[in-house]
Amino acid sequence: MAAALLAAATAGPATARAVDPAPPPPVPTPRQTAQVRPAGEQASEVLSHAHCVLTLHRADAPTARCGAAADTREARSGTLLMTWYTGAAYTGGATDIRGDAGSCDAGGVGVFDISDSLGRSWDHAVSSFRDYGGCAVVEGWDGAGYRGETRIWVGDQPYLGADWDNRISSLVVHG
């Protein structure tokens, strides 16, 4: 094959185009598998932008479930507080934020570090969100641990705006 390409290239551009090699075969994509991470275990892998559920616990670290594990009864337990999306207008991959302590209150609950909770691919990936469970206010930071610049939104947001699209690394939802 290499000899044919070299001969075609030395013969001129018209001949070289005639013997272009076939395109490489497509790279197979990994199947989405059920992924459950117990409270306190850090996310070392990168979770794809499928459907995830992140359950926030007042006393413990959050529990993340993605793919098939996000569609279980256990994952759907607790109060739905928020769903964020990777695309504008509530499209793309989605993460449901659930709380184990009922609906939102003034103190709220937070995701201290999206990357540690769900993996690096979810960090700085929020483009829109919806509020539920009495949550009306979302405060987002562009750094983990509630650090960096911050912004507050009230109600559902079909697009975070050019200045905050794909920028959130930590957040708090409250009533």
Rank of each mutant, 00 (worst) to 15 (best):
N166Y: 03
A9M: 10
P23L: 15
V137E: 13
G108V: 03
T150I: 03
P23W: 07
R167L: 06
A61F: 10
A43E: 06
L81Y: 05
G145I: 02
V27Y: 11
R65D: 03
G99F: 08
T33D: 08
I97F: 14
A68N: 01
M82I: 01
R167M: 09
L171W: 13
E139W: 00
V46K: 06
S44M: 01
A162I: 04
D105H: 09
A106L: 07
A106S: 15
R76M: 14
F129H: 12
R147K: 11
A106V: 10
Y85W: 11
A34T: 00
V53T: 15
G134Q: 07
P23R: 13
T150N: 08
G155T: 04
D100F: 01
P38Y: 06
D105G: 15
A9V: 07
Y159S: 15
Y146Q: 07
C135Q: 05
P13S: 15
G99R: 05
A106N: 07
W164L: 07
D156E: 06
M82P: 00
D100E: 12
T15P: 00
R17W: 03
D165R: 10
G110E: 08
A69Q: 06
V111Q: 03
R76P: 00
A101Q: 12
D96A: 15
A69E: 14
V46Q: 11
D20E: 15
D20V: 07
A39G: 09
T86Q: 13
P21D: 09
C66Y: 05
W141T: 01
A162D: 15
A34D: 11
Y146C: 04
Y159C: 03
M82Y: 04
V53A: 10
R98C: 09
V154H: 14
T95P: 00
S169D: 08
T83P: 00
W164T: 02
R17Q: 11
D60F: 08
G87H: 10
G93M: 08
V137C: 10
G99I: 04
E41V: 06
D20G: 01
G161P: 02
S48R: 12
P25N: 11
S103M: 02
V19W: 03
A69S: 15
R98V: 05
F129S: 04
Q35K: 11
I97C: 06
A9F: 06
F129Y: 14
G119P: 01
P30R: 05
T33W: 01
R167D: 10
D105E: 11
P13M: 14
E41M: 04
P30F: 02
V46T: 11
V138R: 13
L160K: 02
D165Y: 10
D131F: 02
N166I: 02
A14W: 04
P28H: 10
S115P: 00
A61L: 08
T10D: 12
S103P: 05
D113H: 13
A43R: 04
S115Q: 12
V173D: 05
C66A: 08
G40A: 12
V36D: 13
P62I: 08
L81S: 03
E74V: 06
A4K: 07
D142I: 02
H49N: 06
A9S: 07
I168F: 12
E41L: 05
S128F: 06
G12P: 01
A4E: 10
A89F: 11
A75L: 08
V154R: 15
Y159W: 14
C66R: 02
L118M: 14
T91N: 09
S170R: 07
S121I: 00
S127K: 05
N166E: 12
R73K: 13
A136K: 12
V19F: 06
L6A: 12
P23Q: 13
Y90H: 13
